[in-house]
Computed example of a mutant assay.
Amino acid sequence: MAYVRTVKTASGARAVQIVHSSRRGSRDIEHIGSAHDDAALEALKAVARQRLAVGQPELDFGPDFAALQAGSGAGGGPLAITSSRMGYLWDALGHAYQLLGFEEAAGGDEVFRLLVLARIVEPTSKLDSLRVVEEAGFDPPAYATLKRRLPAFAKESWRQKLAAACARTADLGPASLVLYDVSTLYFETDAGDGFREPGFSKERRLEPQITIGLLTDASGFPLMANAFEGNRGETTTMLPTIRAFMDAHQLADVTVVADAGMISAANQQAIEAAGLSFILGARIPDVPYVVQAWRHEHPDEQIPDGHIFTQPWPAGPKDQRRDQII
């Protein structure tokens, strides 16, 4: 951002400067000159405005506007920008918000809507989100109003309504493929409170944290998010989230797709006990027979990219699992 300012010097003259500032607070000041009378001051201001307008052509509003501008004494210089609005961006985000059903799920709560849209524009704190709303050209709610609404946003029923809206958008069917993964959010504090607790951190941080579990459909569209204690193991968060989602949407079966780090032996047994389908990416200790057979039949060839091998893996009499396919 750049603007013209006038400051009084020690000699009593008035200096005209161009200030280039950033949101972080850094500034670069360009000195244009000093004036001892009003005529010289206006001349220096005109020079400063011309420098700011370099490379920025002015719109031609026609002779009527030029006459109006001359009559108002504004001269032929650039017009001052009094406000700005992220109209196209904000309208597009608001339209998507409505199409996803969040407007109805949130009961038309304007504070929640502004908070969601602001954090899409710039992920930041709740307090700083109000600044984003204002920079977008809209009137932000008071911070006290935002804090009063937070208890309602934190209720389980609120999240269930949003999850239901996501499920309707995803058009889930009777055999739905869902993806699940977790992450952690840490807090700038040294003391835990039973929920925010130090635990395993992929960022190797020691501060208290919480574990966030995200359930999505096959395309990555979010379906449900749950929060767990920061010291809770990742593998123990998956089944509670999936069961809650199935109960909320009356789903008889889902296919769980996960990497080996998310499926523990206990998790796999629980999935088997629940009768759920799953696709598990895991290391196989031995080369499957179908791969050995292919190499035997094609000794001098490389396995083509994208080639798919399938091999039945029947359950034995002592195995507590269903028949599987590798």
Rank of each mutant, 00 (worst) to 15 (best):
L239D: 14
V178L: 01
E207D: 15
Y180C: 08
P222N: 06
F245N: 14
P174F: 03
R232I: 15
A191T: 12
E207M: 08
A248E: 09
G192M: 04
L223C: 10
A227H: 06
R196E: 10
A244W: 03
F228I: 12
S219M: 02
T236R: 07
P240R: 02
G194N: 02
D181R: 00
G213N: 03
E229P: 09
G173L: 00
T184S: 03
D193F: 02
N231V: 15
R205W: 04
L206I: 15
E207F: 10
D193S: 04
L239E: 11
M224W: 05
E188N: 03
N226G: 07
L239F: 10
K202V: 14
S183D: 05
Q209L: 05
Q209D: 05
P198C: 11
V182F: 00
L239M: 14
G220C: 04
S183P: 02
E203Y: 11
L214V: 11
A227Y: 06
F228K: 03
V178N: 00
P198D: 12
G173E: 04
I212L: 05
A227G: 11
H249T: 10
S176R: 00
D247Y: 07
L214P: 04
A191H: 05
L223S: 11
F195E: 09
L185F: 01
F228L: 07
L206Y: 13
Y180P: 05
I210G: 02
T184W: 00
R204A: 15
L215W: 10
E197D: 13
S219E: 07
D217Q: 06
I242D: 14
F221V: 09
R232M: 14
P222D: 05
L239R: 11
G192A: 06
A175S: 08
G213W: 01
G233N: 13
